[in-house]
Design a protein around this nucleic acid. Sequence first.
DNA 1: GCCAACGTTGGC
DNA 2: GCCAACGTTGGC
Length: 152
Amino acid sequence: MQYWLMKSEPDVFGIDDLMARPKQTEPWDGVRNYQARNMMRDQMQVGDQVFFYHSNCAEPGIVGIMQVAKAGYPDVTAQDPDSKYHDPKATADNPRWYRVDVKFVRKFPRTITLNELKQHAQLDGMAVLARGNRLSITPVSKAQWDFILALA
DNA sequence: GCCAACGTTGGC
DNA sequence: GCCAACGTTGGC
């Protein structure tokens, strides 16, 4: 089993939105970056544990945990002309973009802020903290996962 | 709203 | 294959 961190803007889809979904499960669609796509398509497996990270908001940071409920499969929103995630180069034969389904596990009693994460030497090298990082999905090591869980 | 950092596109 | 232009991300 592997560990991950996935970003979302709470104004668009936050952890409270995930909690309110039927079965507390949601397709993680709209990812249009090849590195992130490859992780979803090739690596993420059912049961993998994922930190839910709120980005582009007043208090960016980790707000809870979800898990992968369905491994990578084509993101059909790319093939839908009415979707805001439409990509004219995506077809049924060549879907181009992939998504996974995620399921809510728990919400932390507080946000573990980006600022706080940066202050722990134990988390030096964590992908999400790397300078200039913009990837919306990054791997988390077991050591990093355990350390952050203990902060929550 | 600003802007640094980064990924993608497309002309050559 | 190079690289300038452009669009996006995301912290601040």
